[in-house]
Design a protein around this nucleic acid. Structure first.
Lengths: 351, 351
DNA sequence: ATTAGCACTCAAAGCTAACGAGTGCTAATA
DNA sequence: TATTAGCACTCGTTAGCTTTGAGTGCTAAT
């Protein structure tokens, strides 16, 4: 059975709207959103027909309509035909895929593999970072007020990495104060690597900064980010869906936030830093709830460990799970894993 | 402040129980499950103390207790000390990690990458299979009744792959019937590859099998599985968490089932087969809802495409999303992608 | 010091009523 | 004849209420 021109338009409109919203579509919506200039009543009649023909479905009596499988099928078939012609034209335009075969060196493959295996073994989410050498040196820092409330921080690291951070400040700084901070920062930090900037140094600087000590925090974060950028630290995650095994993390509001954190990885860098900087035996650290830096992971526990390359780089492996994780097993697994990793990376030659 | 021996035991019991259940722990539970032989009332008193000390928390007045961050911390620290000694002993035992550095050849890395990129581009879950050559040949099939209701099917494929399937049958087969089926199967199928077994052949066989045609279905599925096993088809998935962007797929009952399907991959093989067998232009197929084979994906739509190697292998790329997916974009993306893949695999030499 | 017993609390589950988006139908209109 | 206005009706959703029961804290007895 062929559909009338009008029914087709209506069906298409219903599906298009539903694709966007995911909610059942009512007659009024269609009446307004199409250029058919028909009242909702008319649309309703047509919709009743379309339903009888099997193209759309009413989830319940007093709801709008959603496409049936048949409806989708009709839509897709139509689309396919339309698209067929466009193919050649578009072919040229869409050559963005070229980087599909991005170069991953052998080590990165191994790391990804480790993350996968670890996730499979433990049933938690896992992360692993490429080794950090922390060799990039801080070249230059420049503060300036862009207006009365906002402070621009320019950080130059290594050979070419430049990072801009805009910070909001509560009380505006005078020109000479900015100048003083500039001198303070550069005289203390120029030429240093991340490893060189220790808590003692930070403390000394804060004392000297006096009332502006608070601002330093933000600047330090910026420095860390910049150095990582220069360092090209990558983080791989795996087993992120394991999160959903634990109802207490499933709060529908926070679940997306949590996933984003794991997928986005920018946040995870903070964890890596913290671990690398505190090297106890095996570097195994347990962060319970709020003990970790990342706000969105405050209902989780995180166990991290480090592995070392003979050339001096340090990488981080971590497990992210609910607070009620099997700490014993996790710690044991990580300990063995890093032992193995150290062994592998330092004996076998991996280019 | 040091905890008394008893408080320690109780705290440990609370945490241990909570680790298992994830539910607040009540005094009665502890009273029963520990070997302290104390009544719940006593435990309650101790729990009140522990709460005051900050080790446990009451989510609300009439609930049991859950560990606080401090409580976990206490538990973990204790554990760490205990474990310290055990380390050496365990080190020997746990050498299962050895396969961390499993060999992934260059192509597999590329495929995994493709899945990742595709997921990032489309915001749907993606899958990609290694090329199937479907060259493994069926050597031998042997049916036999193990008891009155269960039929054992032994399938031998290629050089060494043997697969056993046990099927439940409603009415027991007589010995001579089994014999007849055995002859039927072997005479028709011996030496064939998956590609050789077409619908026509299947039909002919069903006709000859007569009333036992139903059994053939199960046998064919077993054959497919066995050949895949011999073929060593691997499937990589990515972006599985994208599923959670679509509330209609989030039904808490089915969400785990859905994830399992995507992670387990055994089910996905069916999709791959279906795609490979139906080669229209570019092999692009759209399965809407129930149109696909996999029960747990019946609320999803799946778009698949094939890529080809010059040596004759065929692989499958697929996108799994909600029925209301952006078909236009997905089809376009897949089309371009497979174009690119064909190009890449067939010009550049990838070992 | 421990325990039995009891009144009390409060989240979870179930139940009801009000709400409102959206329908189908009828009668009026062009 | 095709369209539309209008209205009664349906039913999922939400909010408020009650019931239930697990678990507590406290007191008095052992």
């Amino acid at each position: 059975m062929e559909l009338s021109e009008r029914k087709m338009k209506i069906l298409k409109a219903i599906i298009a709207t539903y694709l966007k919203t995911g909610e059942p579509v009512g007659s009024r919506t269609i009446s307004k959103d199409t250029d058919l200039h028909l009242s909702s009543a008319t649309i309703r009649n047509e919709m009743a027909d379309l339903e009888e023909l099997g193209y759309i479905i009413q989830p319940h009596t007093s709801a709008g309509r959603i496409p049936s499988d048949l409806g989708y099928r009709y839509y897709v078939n139509l689309l396919m035909e339309e698209n067929e012609e466009m193919h050649d034209r578009e072919k040229e335009r869409e050559k963005e895929h070229q980087d599909l075969i991005n170069k991953m060196d052998r080590m990165e493959v191994v790391l990804k593999n480790v993350a996968d295996k670890l996730a499979a073994n433990t049933n938690y989410a896992t992360m692993i970072s490429t080794p950090q050498y922390n060799e990039a040196k801080l070249k230059f820092i420049q503060l300036s007020m862009v207006d009365s409330r906002r402070l621009l921080v320019v950080i130059v690291v290594g050979n070419e990495t430049v990072k801009n951070v805009i910070m909001n400040v509560d009380d505006p700084l005078q020109n000479d104060e900015v100048l003083k901070l500039n001198i303070l920062l550069n005289s203390f930090l120029q030429g240093l690597t991340l490893g060189d900037i220790n808590l003692e140094l930070v403390h000394t600087m804060k004392v000297q900064a006096g009332m502006h000590a608070g601002i330093l925090e933000g600047i330090f974060q910026g420095i860390v980010d910049a150095i990582h950028e220069a360092d090209n630290t990558k983080i791989y995650t795996s087993g992120t869906t394991n999160i959903f095994r634990y109802p207490e993390l499933m709060d529908p509001d926070k679940t997306t936030e949590l996933l984003d954190t794991l997928v986005d990885k920018k946040q995870l860098v903070k964890l890596v830093d913290e671990t690398v900087s505190q090297e106890e035996r095996h570097g195994i650290q347990v962060y319970i709830g709020n003990e970790n830096q990342v706000q969105s992971l405050k209902d989780c526990s995180i166990v991290t460990a480090t592995y070392k390359l003979k050339e001096g780089g340090t990488g981080t492996v971590g497990i992210i799970g609910p607070k009620r994780m099997d700490y014993r097993k996790v710690v044991r697994t990580l300990r063995n894993l890093t032992d193995d990793l150290d062994e592998i990376f330092n004996s076998e030659d991996i280019e």
